[in-house]
Nucleic acid binder design. Structure first.
Lengths: 204, 204
DNA sequence: GACAAGTTCAAACGATCGTTTGAGGATACG
DNA sequence: CGTATCCTCAAACGATCGTTTGAACTTGTC
């Protein structure tokens, strides 16, 4: 087998990197297949079309990411001693771990792009497939912030998730001091983001 | 003269709308000139190239926006009684007023796109031409938040500006209740954003 | 070795892209 | 009226786009 896995995986990896760098329209299938070291026709053979490829790029990471987010949320959800910071950690930590494990920091950039693009097709896809995740987090936020009106709560969650996605898309590109381990740097970033988000959510 | 101003203005307006909706790559000059009701060749005649047009779309709004931001900042900067909220208002209010005055809410979407794209060419252009604005705001934030380390401060400003740009790009698309005037709705949004940003910036 | 199914390949398809061209219309000044 | 300047127009340029095709190659099974 070629270096770096099956043809499908190599295409997905190259697509993730190029979509992050140049966008969905900006990255051509010729650049993509050339970077992946596969034939041009391989994309349409394995995925059907470029649009289906985009969808699979999202699915591959989001399935795992959201499963982990929900698992982490389940551990703290509903408990009497749960703090706002615990829920935020369940949202943030899996994403930053994704950035560490593999080239996943590139995927967070793809996700941030999708967030800013306001593309209806993409938003519908994300909402239909992963909307239940945000709904569960929203319910838990509502429980921990009883003083906020529904309107105000939605507002702030929108702000926070947008800010966090944008921030996490930059993670991995930040040059860190060499004497700080990746693990420590990630934990430090997590704490920064949690503190920031908690303050914004619970602002008086 | 044709309905909606000169050819140059009509192109800029159509470009702003289409760039917001489909992105710089996704919007073609044929869609653009067709929407503007001008000839295809008019873009290259008046602007030189598509890239130059993109640049002018930014310049037209950012020159005015940043002038207003700096003027608002100058009114509160350095004074002993100045609060964090006043500085944030100088940053936020001009942008939301831009959204009101004309089709400028579309431009905030273009700006949010540029924020998420991490495109080096665009970031360099923005930094070279408008970097002094953020530097002045940063200096004032540093004065009002003496407890934060430089590193921590930059971190939070990055988070806040990203979140605010993203949030303001959504402003104008939010359906508001009809009995609330545009003016009141904008002021309410401004207060929401200021409260959120102030809390995030000064989190303990 | 023979056959079948799965995969890769070079080449080409029509469509659309940004840009250029040269002729022609519009406008202002002598 | 003549002419110079600015602008618009239809048409075409070469390049690149996503996609399709049919032959060649690989792999597993009998």
């Amino acid at each position: 087998m070629n270096p770096a896995g099956s043809t499908k995986e190599r295409i997905l990896n190259a697509a993730e990197a190029l979509f992050a760098q140049r966008g969905f329209d900006g990255a051509s299938l010729r650049q993509l297949t050339s970077a992946a070291g596969v034939n041009l026709a391989a994309v349409n053979y394995h995925f059907g079309s470029k649009d289906k490829l985009v969808e699979q790029v999202f699915r591959r990471r989001l399935d795992a990411l959201n499963t982990e987010r929900l698992a982490a949320l389940a551990k703290v959800s509903g408990a009497p001693g749960t703090r706002l910071e615990d829920v935020l950690a369940a949202f943030i930590r899996p994403a930053l771990e994704l950035s560490h494990d593999n080239g996943g920091s590139l995927f967070m950039r793809v996700l941030a792009r999708a967030f800013a693009e306001h593309d209806d097709t993409l938003r519908t896809f994300l909402s239909e497939n992963y909307g239940h995740v945000m709904r569960q987090f929203t319910a838990e936020f509502a429980r921990l912030l009883p003083g906020l009106s529904k309107e105000e709560l939605y507002w702030r969650i929108d702000l926070v998730t947008g800010a966090l996605t944008l921030a996490m898309s930059g993670f991995g590109m930040i040059r860190r001091r060499d004497n700080v381990s990746e693990r420590a740097h990630r934990e430090q970033t997590t704490q920064h983001l949690i503190r920031f988000a908690a303050a914004g959510l619970s602002a008086s």
